[in-house]
């Protein structure tokens, strides 16, 4: 079977130890308002339109059968309600302002590509990270790729929101060297409001990973008003220390650099409503977690 991939990032160094390649799989079952990869949310390919790259040549107009593109006073107008995502306009866009990412690969082809950088992984203690979206939404493909990576001697990491059936996790765990996951909020209502989903399954899966003896890197994306309170951080620490064997957390600073992606996809920009995490808040969160007995990994 083929996996739906929206990006393969070589020389990734924020998604696990060492030098890595990160494979971003399409489709996500959460809708975090601060999402940095909005292009990952839909399982289907989407046409992205980057206004800043558009030269206004108008050639795309001739090749849009649905009349979704018009030009007024030299400015391209793009009506997404008429667009059927066929990608034809992107075939003619030499400025690369219209991009239609529709990459599908077999696990064999993917691993063949991943192996090209094996020498860099081996020297740096790195490997491969599967991210998304939610990679477990393409479970069969993910597990096949993980198995092939394992057979090829590649270190594997999976970045998951853990809002997935526990069986999937059990099935994948033997082939995963490191799970990377967020603890976004302990209060279930707050979690639902912020991500569109309950945290119950997520917390159950964290406990499961602990029981399985899996290596885990837990992250908290610091979202002001959602999870930076003493109450949430205390609950997070208590959960980890009482219910699991995990004792380390890496708080992450939120940034708002990805807002242009929302515009390119015609999506409501929910990210710009957030503030980037300032140093003071970051330090405060770290200190509180440490005070509750958590070993904090500082994100550099």
């Amino acid at each position: 079977m083929k996996g739906k991939i929206f990006n393969i990032q070589r020389l990734s160094y924020h998604d696990g130890p060492g030098i890595r390649t990160t494979v971003f799989l399409r489709g996500c079952n959460l809708r975090c308002a601060w999402c940095h990869n909005p292009e990952s949310q839909s399982p289907k390919p989407q046409l992205a339109y980057y206004r800043s790259s558009c030269t206004g040549c108008g050639i795309c107009i001739e090749h849009c059968e649905k009349g979704a593109i018009t030009i007024n006073d030299g400015v391209i107008d793009y009506d997404r309600s008429k667009c059927e995502n066929c990608g034809n306009c992107a075939d003619y866009c030499v400025a690369n302002a219209r991009r239609y990412e529709n990459r599908e690969m077999t696990a064999e082809a993917l691993v063949k590509l991943l192996l090209k950088d094996k020498a860099y992984y081996d020297k740096s203690g790195g490997g491969v990270t599967f991210s998304g979206g939610e990679p477990f939404l393409q479970k069969e493909f993910l597990i096949e790729a993980l198995q092939l990576c394992r057979e090829s001697g590649l270190h594997t990491a999976v970045e998951t929101a853990l809002c997935i059936p526990s069986d999937s996790l059990r099935e994948a765990a033997p082939y995963v060297d490191l799970f990377m996951f967020d603890m976004k909020a302990m209060d279930d209502d707050a979690h639902r409001k912020a991500t569109g989903a309950s945290n119950k399954q997520i917390l159950a899966n964290i406990k499961l990973l602990s029981e399985l003896g899996a290596d885990g890197l837990i992250r908290i994306p610091i979202v002001k008003g959602l999870n930076d309170s003493e109450e949430n951080l205390k609950a997070t620490a208590e959960f980890l220390l009482r219910e699991t064997s995990f004792t380390c957390v890496e708080p992450l600073k939120l940034h708002t650099l990805a807002t242009s992606k929302y515009d390119s996809l015609g999506m409501d920009d929910t990210l710009s409503g957030f503030e980037s995490t300032d140093d003071e808040t970051y330090t405060c969160v770290c200190n509180m977690l440490e005070a509750y007995g958590i070993h904090v990994i500082i994100n550099k």
């Binding site: 160094y13 020498a119 550099k300």
Partner: peptide, 17 residues
Amino acid sequence: LVAGDAGAERMRILTET
């Protein structure tokens, strides 16, 4: 990419490889 000690190590690994 090459900031700090980790960046120096990346620089070495990339060049050496």
